[in-house]
Design a binder for these strands. Structure first.
Length: 684
DNA sequence: GCGGATCAC
DNA sequence: TATGGTGATCCGC
């Protein structure tokens, strides 16, 4: 689930004041440790009665000054800036705007309300501290003692005794040890967890053969049928199911029952651990339940979204999503707004989705940061080998390869290339990945990852037509089709292998030693590096995107396409001062296409795409016009070159953009103070 | 199609 | 001393 919070927000037109920036380092605040990113303390369960302030202070003291922490501060500054811009846009809304959006919001809320489906009974079951519980099962001496599964650098799961000290999953172990010196660390044993997960699933299957496995430790069951057949209440089913799970595994779990999956998940958390909560299929009950519920409890609302909604709109509870509905629909895209309203109404998915196929496969590894290029190539080769092995295991071939890098300063970069050929051999992966990596040097890296997507469709045959699925979903769920992407749902995570954060580094020893340079039997670092040079310009089958092939393009000028009418737009009456680009483009547009009109329908809605923008958002409207213009020009261009080779200009533009970007990065790297966030503060 | 972000687990 | 790995999705460009 992603909430595109940044869309309608204007880019950094507003310069940040120095004082505002300083506020991010905590220097002028009374409690610098109370920053939103100290998320460890806002646990969902088991953290009641924890001295939160003490935990926050400890986490802060342990983290302060680290590279990791500095990066977190950068990210937080970015969020603060976003919040700042949202506030400015809020302030720009006139009473007329608000009255308009109130109507829009109310209408939409009514539509969503009409889609409410109270006919299904969903049960969400969630194992309690699963990894830790399994480990305690196999080593009963751990019982009653604070314990964490994971390592000194990262914790997967903590048992409830440890949680009392503020120890939490995704917390680095050395901080956890500070919070709880007697904490026992147990390494992860993935096979063990899979075994117990299978046992629980055997139980789940008895209640819903089509249950949705969210991860190893949680599942959604549609128990409508069972309840009806046995003529029992959902509460009894939940009791029975939990007892069965305990009987078969010795593990406790918690359950939530509700009319849809979103609510069921919230409910399973309420009486955790070893408890359950039933929300009846009754509209009033749902609305009462949702009214005071903090938005962060909703799946899909993470710390960033929570922070923005809280600080910009004063939204703390789900109910307030409706109260502030006019502001929300004024400032967010409709897909996002729909999701927010659904939260406010307590709506969620009620259908049983069909099997879904993975869309990508990836491998990534963290190591001690290095700028040694030969060493990085070696790491890359290892990752490529692991990925290739995984792909071959599943018989997958893909044509988009993405390299992920995390720099020593925790900045994440991705670089992708789309090939004409579907690949899955380690040689092919490494060849293309090496090119992507090479372009980033010099760089100090602490993580390398590779992902392959765009799989060969033949692999799945006709069974994976996503459109078909969407239609099915539409019919069975009774939801507006447009909303489907806006509802976060566990089915989005069907392929998550490790739940509760599986941090175990699977042993790859054999693979690392067997990993050979595809073009050189020699395994030495230098050889790896040198052989890379041989690949330069060697990828003939590669689609010429970023760096090769600018020379092979046959593009030679253009033949204007007359009367291209795909775009129908005259640009906003907001004429004047939009710079010469627009004017020039507009001239071109006028001369090359039939005129018709882009209007703001009812003063608010774009006649071309339906986007809403209030009249007071002058600059945003200009940008929007630009967008349609650019879109139109692009269409024109692609028409021109449809029969010829790809346009050189576009690739050159790409190249220039990349070059200038990497130059920037190199420069700042050299200075040792690369802070992407700063770009945001600078007016162009 | 690419890159950055957000989110879940 | 020291802050993970896998997958999905969306937006702006």
């Amino acid at each position: 689930m992603e909430l595109h919070l940044q869309m309608k927000e204007k880019k950094a037109e507003i310069e940040m004041e120095g004082s505002e920036r300083e506020s991010n380092d905590g220097g002028d605040r009374p409690h610098p440790w109370q920053s939103y990113h100290t998320v460890y303390t806002i646990a969902k369960a088991g953290m009641e009665g924890v001295d939160k302030e003490k935990v926050q202070r400890t986490v802060y003291e342990m983290s302060k000054g680290s590279k990791y922490f500095q990066n977190e501060e950068r990210k937080e500054a970015f969020i603060n800036h976003k919040i700042h811009n949202f506030r400015l846009n809020c302030a720009k809304l006139t009473p007329q705007d608000l009255s308009h959006y109130r109507k829009v919001a109310d209408r939409r809320i009514l539509e969503l309300e009409a889609s409410r489906d109270l006919s299904r009974i969903w049960l969400h079951v969630d194992m309690d501290a699963f990894y830790a519980a399994v480990e305690t099962l196999s080593n009963p001496t751990l019982k009653g003692k604070p314990m964490a599964v994971g390592t000194i650098s990262m914790i997967s799961t903590a048992n409830y005794e440890a949680r009392k000290f503020g120890v939490r999953s995704a917390m680095p172990g050395f901080i956890a040890r500070k919070l709880c010196p007697q904490l026992i660390f147990v390494p992860t044993d993935f096979n063990k967890y899979t075994h117990y997960s299978d046992l629980t699933r055997k139980v789940f299957r008895r209640y819903d053969p089509n249950f949705i496995a969210g991860s190893l430790d949680e599942a959604y069951l549609d128990i409508t049928q069972v309840c009806k057949e046995r003529n029992v209440k959902s509460e009894q089913i939940a009791q029975e199911l939990r007892a069965s799970v305990y009987e078969e595994t010795g593990l406790t779990c918690s359950a939530g029952v509700a009319p849809n999956r979103l609510l069921a998940k919230v409910c399973s958390d309420i009486n955790k651990p070893n408890g359950q909560y039933i929300l009846p299929n009754d509209r009033v009950a749902v609305m009462t339940f949702i009214s005071s519920l903090p938005i962060r409890k909703i799946g899909g609302i993470g710390k960033v979204t929570e922070s923005i909604l809280k600080e910009v709109f004063g939204i703390n509870t789900c109910e307030q999503m409706l109260e502030k509905g006019s502001y929300l629909c004024a400032l967010f895209p409709q897909s996002t707004t729909d999701f927010f309203y659904s939260v406010g109404l307590g709506l969620g998915k009620t259908d049983s989705p069909q099997e879904r196929f993975r869309k990508s496969i990836s491998t990534e590894r963290t190591f001690s940061a290095t700028e040694d290029e030969a060493l990085l190539y070696k790491r890359l080769a290892e990752v490529a080998q692991m990925l290739s092995t995984d792909m071959q295991k599943e018989g997958l071939c893909g044509r988009t390869l993405t390299l992920k890098l995390k720099t020593a300063s925790f900045e994440v970069r991705t670089r992708a290339v789309t090939l004409q050929k579907y690949i899955n051999s380690s040689e092919d992966i490494l060849k293309h990945a090496s090119k992507l990596l090479k372009a980033e040097f010099p760089i100090s890296v602490r993580l390398i990852g590779l992902r392959v997507s765009q799989f060969n469709e033949d692999k799945y045959g006709a069974t994976s037509d996503p459109k078909q699925k969407t239609i099915t979903h539409f019919i069975t769920s009774g939801e507006d089709n447009r909303n489907s992407s806006s509802f976060p749902d566990v089915t989005d995570h069907d392929f998550v292998a490790g739940m509760e954060t599986d941090l175990s580094i699977v042993s790859r020893q054999t693979c690392q030693h067997e990993c050979r340079d595809p073009f050189d039997g020699n395994h030495s670092l230098d050889a790896d590096y040198q052989s890379y040079a041989a690949w330069e310009n060697g990828g003939a089958e590669e689609v010429p995107t970023s760096e090769n092939d600018a020379t092979s393009s046959n593009y030679s000028g253009c033949t204007d396409v007359p009367g291209s009418t795909s775009f129908q737009g005259q640009f906003a009456d907001t004429n004047v001062n939009n710079g010469c680009n627009l004017l020039k483009d507009q001239e071109r547009l006028e001369s090359s296409c039939q005129e018709s009109t882009m209007l703001w329908l009812n003063d608010y809605k774009c006649s071309l795409c339906g986007t809403e923008l209030p009249p007071s958002f002058v600059e945003e409207r200009l940008e929007h016009s630009d967008f349609h213009l650019a879109e139109k020009l692009q269409k024109e261009e692609s028409k021109i070159h449809q029969t010829s080779l790809p346009s050189q200009s576009r690739y050159q533009k790409d190249r220039i953009a990349r070059q200038s970007k990497s130059k920037k990065q190199r420069l700042s790297q050299k200075e040792g103070s690369y802070t992407p966030i700063d770009y945001f503060f600078v007016r162009e």
